[in-house]
Design a protein around this nucleic acid. Sequence first.
DNA 1: TTACTTTTGATCAAAAATAATCAATATTGA
DNA 2: TCAATATTGATTATTTTTGATCAAAAGTAA
Lengths: 250, 250
Amino acid sequence: MNFQERKKKILTALDDAESLTVFELAEILEASPATIRRDLGDIAEEGLLVRTHGGAMKMENPALTGFSEKSGVNSPVKEQIAEKAASYVQDGDIIFLDCGSTVFQMCRYLKKKSIRVITNSLPILAELIDVPSIQINLIGGELNKARKAVHGDKAVQHINGYHAHKAFIGVDGLSAENGLTAHSEHESSITTAFIRNAGQVMLLCDASKIGRDSYVKFAELSAIHTLITDADTAKTAALQQSGLNVEIAG
Amino acid sequence: MNFQERKKKILTALDDAESLTVFELAEILEASPATIRRDLGDIAEEGLLVRTHGGAMKMENPALTGFSEKSGVNSPVKEQIAEKAASYVQDGDIIFLDCGSTVFQMCRYLKKKSIRVITNSLPILAELIDVPSIQINLIGGELNKARKAVHGDKAVQHINGYHAHKAFIGVDGLSAENGLTAHSEHESSITTAFIRNAGQVMLLCDASKIGRDSYVKFAELSAIHTLITDADTAKTAALQQSGLNVEIAG
DNA sequence: TTACTTTTGATCAAAAATAATCAATATTGA
DNA sequence: TCAATATTGATTATTTTTGATCAAAAGTAA
């Protein structure tokens, strides 16, 4: 049985029982306690259960923490990009965090830092709200329930009232010809606002999106200071020739 | 049994009994008094109960735990007030919901309605986000982690950008002499903004707060259209003489 | 007030659980 | 196929939790 299967079974089992011990789970899953501990540690880090001494308890409110359940498996690639991106954040920074699964993965690596986070993403909010060293400003506006994020004119105006040292953003498409593209104006207007009001803009983007264009063209390549990606130099060559600073993660 | 489980049981037990001794809890949880004392110390530090000499008491206004405030602390009185308040909400309404436990209880009774809710409270957000018939606007600004709500200048400015049919608010104190009073300026400035931008203002307030004054005086009685309370007419007489419309719940 | 009782917080040793390490096995990609 | 990588389970060292003990502090009654 692999990790994904065990994860599913553990969460199902915890849904019935309020809480279970490592040994109970070891018996249910026919795996060793060591494996169960590793699994529980990983799942707890995703915020889907509460680790206790000796076992685990069901999360009371997975409503807003459910980015990982929505996007299924967080790919190792996204994690590497997120980790690299997080390494650009220093204590004392004020940063914008866009909504999007790769940016969300940064949370893990931000928890040890002393920073202020300004975001429109509810999963990010849920993930960081219990970290004492991180202060949070929430972007207000209309709530997009599907994306678990805030958007709209009011949100853009609100972002314009802030200035951050760095912005970490995502896109749907990126190419030397068309710059940054998205598949919705709602999203792109928020991202544009982050770009406009940040000192440095870091774009997190996995290889699959490079060279691909979506239909809303919302920013030039020159708006970005650094692209953080897992793509190889062959794919990013055109971008680098356009003067973009590229950082390969992994 | 581990700490997380005991914590849950202690809070549940305290919800029924008003207060319990260390020895009573030790018996209920089958743990030693030393363990109970440690637990009570830790939980008290989180602000979820009041430590007394020899035991613990229920917190009247515990900081909203988690996003979704589960069972925990809803008194029947607050529920009656909340139900009555919700009966003032009609389909199509745009309403402001303040943060505070009584206003939060309204959520239960709002779920069948088709409305737009504008709020600064994260527990309310979490409670209503999955209701398809309710659209939500989130007030943006600085996040107060302890209260799980947004506040600050930006939040007030943001509220000023909206107009709602009705506002449902709470207070810490209410009297004919001093009007509405609060514990903190942060809270009161938000509530003031709701009052200023709503067509009708409904004040949800249990009997214990009537005739009591807190130290930040932030609005006149005349700002309120209807007081919804469980207090008897003896207590509300002075308020009614000042021209306040009083609705008794229950 | 003073004497007496209760409660507490600190300390400590025992027990339980965990994290780290390592070898064996399974999986993946060339 | 083989080499490289990842996963698993066992072993060991470390950490956490717990209950007992006891002096100090807080509460109570005279």
